[in-house]
Design a protein around this nucleic acid. Sequence first.
DNA 1: CGAATAGTGTCTTTAAGACAATATGCC
DNA 2: GGCATATTGTCTTAAAGACACTATTCG
Lengths: 274, 274
Amino acid sequence: MQFENAQAEKKYYETEASEADFIKWYKSQDLPKYETPSVTIDNVMFSYNREEDQMKMLLIKRKAHPFKDSWALPGGFVNPSESTGESCLRETKEETGVELTELNIEQLYTFSTPNRDPRGWVITTSYLAFLNQEALTAGDDASDVKWFNIQLKGDQLCLSADDIEIQVDIKKEEMLDESPERLAFDHVKIISTAFNRIIGKMYYQPRVLTVLGESFTITEARKVFSKFLGVDYRTIDHSNFKKDLLKFVKEVDERPTGVGRPSKFYALNIPYLK
Amino acid sequence: MQFENAQAEKKYYETEASEADFIKWYKSQDLPKYETPSVTIDNVMFSYNREEDQMKMLLIKRKAHPFKDSWALPGGFVNPSESTGESCLRETKEETGVELTELNIEQLYTFSTPNRDPRGWVITTSYLAFLNQEALTAGDDASDVKWFNIQLKGDQLCLSADDIEIQVDIKKEEMLDESPERLAFDHVKIISTAFNRIIGKMYYQPRVLTVLGESFTITEARKVFSKFLGVDYRTIDHSNFKKDLLKFVKEVDERPTGVGRPSKFYALNIPYLK
DNA sequence: CGAATAGTGTCTTTAAGACAATATGCC
DNA sequence: GGCATATTGTCTTAAAGACACTATTCG
């Protein structure tokens, strides 16, 4: 990282000033600034509804230009006092009321193509966020907030809510032309990247399972995995799946009732998510 | 992504203006701006010297405050007309004279902890860059540019050049106290992240092999891998290693002379690096 | 030919996957 | 008991790893 402000700095460092003195001096200067971009975060937020056995992703309908009436990922500006990760946690709280920790989120990728926002220079760092509940505060008046059911068939992702359908090819990173709904900005790319990341990492760092909250059964984990593999969960062999998963979880005692043999409960081993 | 500038925008979108009209109007406004950070890229650049059988990483000695006399990763400001990836390629060219492509680089992580730069708000997106030659233009007068030999023993990374030694624990992401040299900013974290990423991905996306240029032998690939595994390359079984590697490479005809049976040459299959 | 190095083949061990058998709780 | 569901165990198949053998070139 270089941050040479040419003349002024150079003159200064040639004196044998201390670091502290330098900073004090530096901040007192009103140095000519480089042009700087707006920096935002975009959240690819997931939740899982046990009753419906549905994996869901949050999108917001834009009521303002640009991309008026298109669907967009929730997000917002990064504040000078916070890291992008903290920004992601704050936005999630504001948007859904859910308080997450660093274990529930993962930095995805930073998108910075010039003109990705028609209004000007905006760089965004995207995050995966896994909520342990399908919670939602009322959308503000500028937006229409919806949890979309996700369904994968091969490389094709279908997002649906009520009568709305959005279809994406997550390898080509583009929408299928059929769907009348649009995605704003480069959010097709972000969403595609998100799914590819989750699919690629779930067998060695299954952070996606934090959608199941504190504890869960093997079968629930199978169901979550099946959503990203695009298969029925029963095609994932319980016995073999458990062998794999045991590397990442520990048994916790908790045995609720229900039909059939009660299942054991497991919790994720924190160290594997770091 | 939200970019609500409150009143002004709201008033406008309520009219039924087109998107193009909106942008024209928007740019004509001199809207109050949020505070924006400087955005930089930092490069973790690697090269491999066949003669010495040495993997190398580039560091620059800072001659100015802050972190005067510490070693830092090469990098620089992102321009409004370029993505961070393009910025990385440009900086690499400026710093070393080597012209890379997107296949040689990989976005690593975006670091944004407040106060990571004592001068103010600076966010950096870090990149891995694999040069196919140990090239270097003369360092400018503000810097002392050196290729450090890298050596791993377990989690301990040792960077050495001439009589200089820098030791890092790449799991704890901190320097060992012994070494008198310092690393600037949060570059210990960036470097640690870089090694962990390379190690984690080399068996399923061995982009690191682009340090070997257009074509290479199995043994050369073993040598490169061994540097990141912290072992002698002869402990990596040639036969088994080849079985793995064949998934990612194709044979090219080229057979130079030398002692021993001449080895076949291979080139990376581009699709695996995308 | 012998040393050096690369390539190929085989055997063993381990992990992955398919499938069957057993266990538990509710009705 | 019968059904539903979960757990456990076994057998088969495929991948990973260790190791031995063959091939090619140079001096």
